[in-house]
Design a protein around this nucleic acid. Structure first.
Length: 967
RNA sequence: GCCCCGAUGGUGGAAUCGGUAGACACGCAGGACUUAAAAUCCUGUGACCGAUGAGGUUGUGCGGGUUCAAGUCCCGCUCGGGGUACCA
């Protein structure tokens, strides 16, 4: 962190550098953490979200989750589990490609370098990864299987009735047998025309392929996509945040393009239901539920006035969650992309409608989001007919109706929907209240609470009953039916980029076909530049001979980032298998991830895609569990804690001289002299400092416990060479603020620096000690000394300070010593089980303090203690373990067993309270029953004093807790 | 706007099932050892009243409530963090 003047003293005692280097080499050499695919032991699979290796390397926030999972993995090994704890790299990604575009350097090269750096940093922290199982998504042996799964997705369709994916060969035979009438209902498919078996027989090869495309789980279609011109590619919904790209923050537009998509919507219901079974946090499940966004309601068809003349005799289909408000409909609204618009538009309205559609088309996502509260739209000139009242309802167009949801058309109930209300107010359309409640002259009444009015046969019903009744009526009339909708959209699966998995797809007669399995992996070709071609084709179009042996052109898009990360947990089970993604045996043995640790930011991306991917593989019988991650822990983010020095600004310099002669400021005539090395910094708590000074970032490496190293600060930048400081109590005290960890704020803490100064064991324990694992918190080294002292003290207790030999004694531990030990065994095991690592670290400190008080140096006690400590401070634990004469690594030691008999108390100190207020404590034997306790308490001297002859109304006795007397 | 989560000393946090709030650690103050520093060890440390003691009062964002007993449960707010955003 800063000067190393104390280092010699650290070395004399606990030499963490030597210890950690030794054990890291030992683990690597002995393959201590190698997991076997066959074992008599029960299995446990602990997985971290693998990192994207960025050029900046790891900062202290990254390892937080890795440390937690490593503790748990090591703990499970002690418990006798065969633990799989692998690590790898999510190696495809935009930054490496952006860098390649700028420098011409091959992204594979940058990625390889960054991975090497990550690996080096990870190794320093002493993780128990089985590196023999490392995967990299950009390795051909890995993306072979990403491509292989894509081929399966392409050749599958989703049977809604059976609730599973089935092969397209079955689909073809159904179509040949009976046409698609039934499948339009029973299969997850894109909307398309109904046809008969005879029609199918008459279709050409190309025509059939076009039909099949509507059913495939990986399909090509013209889709409204998020196009990012700056990145030159499309993005998935979860990669767009507030209209800007997640990576880089560039603007994103809506654009109609031919793209690969995954029919993830087919699995919406299963993705929703599956959540109930999972041991995930409620907040994360809730996020996924909202993202999937199930809503139930009804689809209703409205006749168009003179529909037959306009060729619209099929009417207008809308979706609503509030069929109860059908009598409150006063107009209809279509999205600007709606296919019926040309037919609906009357001659008088033609120009206005065309202008509006054009306007809406040119608006970016960002513009639309900025104007959420503005109403805009245009009347088509046509009318729909109310199915019950027969009333004429004007049909409008507005961008507040979305093309991708429901049918892209709504019935507007201005009184009971705030968006319809705003629109009606703006265009002066009628507002008709049909549910009693609220004040609709002010705002829409949206609560699903109240009684129906002005609604014919619904009058007097409660909202819930009315919804039910109306759906019945709609179905009876044959104008619609109950229907469920999901907010979840199909995932756009192609990227117009270089650095990703190539699709195993070639084109024949304009239609895509999959490569045969024996042509996999389809290797990523070399290109001269990582930019799109002049014609706007993706970079792969630059590759020479980018075609099959038969000369068919290959797909030029590549797969998105989530392709490689969707099934990586399976590949770790069997990473070197060249014949299958994962062997049956390996899958049967490891089944699913028992503990998954990673950031909550993947809630609506990776964690959904991955569940979808797994469910698909499950349907194909390739994996044996329906959900990939049984338990999930979201580690919080570690923020930066910036330090500030307070610079006296020139504007206030003269004033400061007058107001504060005690600051002894030199007389300066010009700002030039001021700038040339007469900068003055005022310590944080000097009175009136804030009236004269501006805060400026000071590099946190020049600050220790908020005290600035003024000498180092002067040397930091040339401008500061002659800086002067107004001190308080001999120190310059800095201010601090929590900000994002970033270079520009000079607040990045690098794990290597901490390891260099305190060692990996201290860093590991300190990151855990900082607070609950799920909580976000600023990085602050303030408390690290406490953990460091603990480890030094542990070392000193076990080893002789002068000789370094084991200083523990043989002999039977005393009752008091055993009590401390067993109390600690229980606490550490309980805390580790519930992922409360911060309290576990406290438990070690308490135990060492208590053993210190007892002057305990018994080998038997410290042997058990050291095993408990080994997941948290593995290097030091190994060192002690070896000194005790054990041959093998402590990682294989058996976890000490808690025995209650050593911790049982003979008596218990009962707090006795009167009317809820604590008054005195009374020690009583433990085995008393409540009645006996009550008797003894009431008979006591202290109770008599408090009762003063009165008899208590009530006495509450909670064994081993409290006695409460109510007067 | 909607959904979720949170608020405890100077600081990070503990209190696992409604049962002695503030464990553990940092910081701070005082002391021991030392020529000195570092390292190490000891003592004190929520606030207020009291004499520095005994002792007492008060105290978990705010206002109510349930209970013998509330940081914990219920109702109503305030503030902070995260997610999501015309999803009909």
């Amino acid at each position: 962190m800063h000067s190393g003047k104390h280092d010699t003293y650290i070395f004399m005692e606990y030499d963490f550098r030597k210890i950690e280097a030794y054990w890291q080499a030992y683990w690597q050499e002995h393959k201590t953490f190698k997991a076997e695919n066959q074992s008599s032991k029960p299995k446990y699979y602990v997985l971290d979200m693998f990192p994207y290796p960025s050029g900046a390397g790891l900062h202290v926030g990254h390892p937080l989750g890795y440390i937690a999972s490593d503790i748990y993995a090591r703990y499970k090994r002690l418990q006798g589990f065969n633990v799989l704890h692998p690590m790898g790299f999510d190696a495809y990604g935009l930054p490496a490609e952006q860098y390649a575009i700028q420098t011409g350097q091959h992204p594979a090269e940058t990625t390889r370098r960054n991975i090497a750096r990550y690996r080096q940093q990870l190794d320093l922290l002493g993780f128990s990864f089985d590196w023999d199982r490392e995967v990299r998504t950009c390795a051909p042996a890995y993306y072979h299987w990403t491509q292989w799964v894509f081929i399966r997705l392409f050749h599958s369709w989703y049977d809604k009735k059976a609730q599973k994916a089935r092969p397209d060969t079955e689909l073809e035979s159904i179509l040949a047998r009976e046409g698609n009438a039934r499948l339009l209902e029973e299969a997850a498919c894109s909307p398309h025309e109904v046809f008969s078996a005879q029609d199918w027989a008459a279709y050409s090869e190309k025509g059939r392929q076009q039909v099949l495309m509507n059913y495939r789980l990986a399909f090509l279609s013209d889709t409204m996509v998020n196009w990012c011109p700056k990145l030159g590619t499309v993005l998935a919904n979860d990669e767009v945040i507030n209209g800007l790209s997640q990576r880089g923050g560039y603007p994103v537009e809506r654009k109609l393009m031919k793209q690969w998509s995954l029919r993830i919507t087919a699995y919406a219901q299963r993705l929703l239901d599956g959540l109930d079974e999972l041991d995930w946090t409620d907040s994360l499940k809730e996020m996924q539920r909202n993202w999937i966004g199930k809503s139930t309601g009804a689809e209703v068809r409205f006749e168009i006035e003179n529909g037959a003349e306009k060729g619209l005799d099929k009417g207008l289909e809308i979706f609503t969650t509030r069929p109860d408000t059908l009598f409150g409909v006063s107009f209809m609204v279509l999205c600007p992309e709606h296919e019926m618009i040309p037919a609906l538009t009357t001659a008088e309205q033609k120009e206005a409608v065309e202008d509006y559609v054009k306007y809406a088309k040119n608006r970016t996502e960002r513009e639309r989001q900025a104007d959420v509260n503005k109403a805009s739209g245009v009347f088509t000139g046509s009318y729909a007919i109310h199915p019950f009242s027969g009333e004429k309802l004007p049909i409008w167009i507005s961008e507040y109706v979305l093309a991708g949801y429901g049918t892209g058309a709504i019935m507007a109930v201005a009184a009971h929907d705030s968006r319809d209300y705003r629109f009606a107010k703006h265009f002066n359309l009628p507002i008709r209240q049909v549910v009693a409640g609220g004040d609709i002259s002010q705002e829409a009444y949206e609560a699903k609470d109240g009684t129906l009015v002005n609604s014919d046969f619904l009058n007097g019903l409660k909202v819930k009953e009315a919804i039910h009744r109306m759906v019945e009526e709609i179905e009876k009339k044959g104008i619609g039916k109950a229907r469920t909708n999901f907010r979840l959209r199909d995932a756009i699966f192609s990227r117009q980029r270089y650095w990703g998995e190539p699709f195993p797809i070639y084109y024949k007669d304009g239609m895509p076909y999959t490569l045969p399995d024996d042509k996999l992996p389809l290797l990523l070709p070399e290109v001269d530049k990582y930019l799109p071609t002049e014609e706007g084709e993706p970079p792969l179009a630059r590759a020479k001979n980018w075609k099959t042996e038969e000369g068919y052109p290959l797909e030029t898009s590549t797969m998105p980032g989530f392709a490689g990360s969707s099934a990586y947990y399976l590949r770790y089970m069997d990473p070197h298998n060249g014949k299958a993604l994962v062997s049956k045996e390996a899958d049967q043995y490891w089944k699913q991830v028992d503990l998954y640790v990673g950031g909550a930011e993947h809630a609506t991306g990776h964690l959904i895609y991955s569940r979808f991917w797994n469910k698909f593989l499950f349907d194909l019988g390739l994996v044996c569990t329906d959900e990939p991650y049984r338990k999930l822990i979201n580690q919080g983010m570690i923020q930066g804690r910036s330090s500030f020095a307070y610079r006296l600004n020139w504007a206030n310099y003269k004033k400061a001289i007058e107001a504060h002669p005690d600051w002894k400021l030199p007389e300066l005539e010009s700002p030039a002299g001021f700038a040339e090395g007469s900068l003055v910094f005022v310590s944080k708590n000097i009175p009136h400092r804030e009236d004269f000074c501006d805060p400026v970032h000071a590099d946190i490496h020049l600050v220790d416990n908020d005290i600035l190293d003024t000498e180092a600060f002067r040397q930091w930048m040339p401008d500061l060479a002659k800086a002067a400081f107004i001190l308080e109590e001999g120190h310059y005290v800095c201010g601090a603020e929590v900000e994002k960890m970033s270079k520009s704020m000079y607040n990045v803490e690098n794990p290597d620096d901490i390891v260099e100064k305190y060692g990996a064991d201290t860093l590991r324990m300190y990151e855990m000690f900082l607070g609950p694992i799920e909580q976000s918190k600023p990085w602050d080294t303030k408390g690290i000394e406490g953990v460091f002292r603990f480890l030094k003290k542990y070392w000193r207790t076990c080893f002789d300070e002068n000789t370094g030999a084991l200083a523990l004694e043989d002999g039977e531990p005393s009752a008091a010593e055993l009590k401390v030990l067993h109390k600690t065994i229980k606490k550490i095991i309980d805390d580790t089980e519930r992922f409360s690592f911060n309290t576990a670290v406290s438990g070690f400190m308490i135990a060492l303090n208590e053993l210190g008080d007892l002057k305990c140096r018994k080998k038997a006690v410290f042997e058990a203690f050291t095993i408990l400590l080994s997941p948290y401070a593995p290097h030091l634990a190994e060192e002690v373990w070896k000194a005790m004469g054990h041959e093998s690594s402590i990682a294989c030691a058996p976890l000490p067993v808690y025995e209650e008999k050593y911790t049982l108390d003979q008596s218990f100190n009962y707090p006795v309270s009167f009317n809820g207020k604590m008054r005195f404590n009374m020690e009583l034997p433990l085995d008393l029953d409540p009645a006996e306790i009550e008797k003894q308490v009431l008979a006591s001297e202290q109770a008599a004093k408090w009762l003063e002859g009165k008899s208590p109304k009530k006495v509450i006795v909670v064994p081993k807790r409290i006695v409460n007397i109510v007067l």
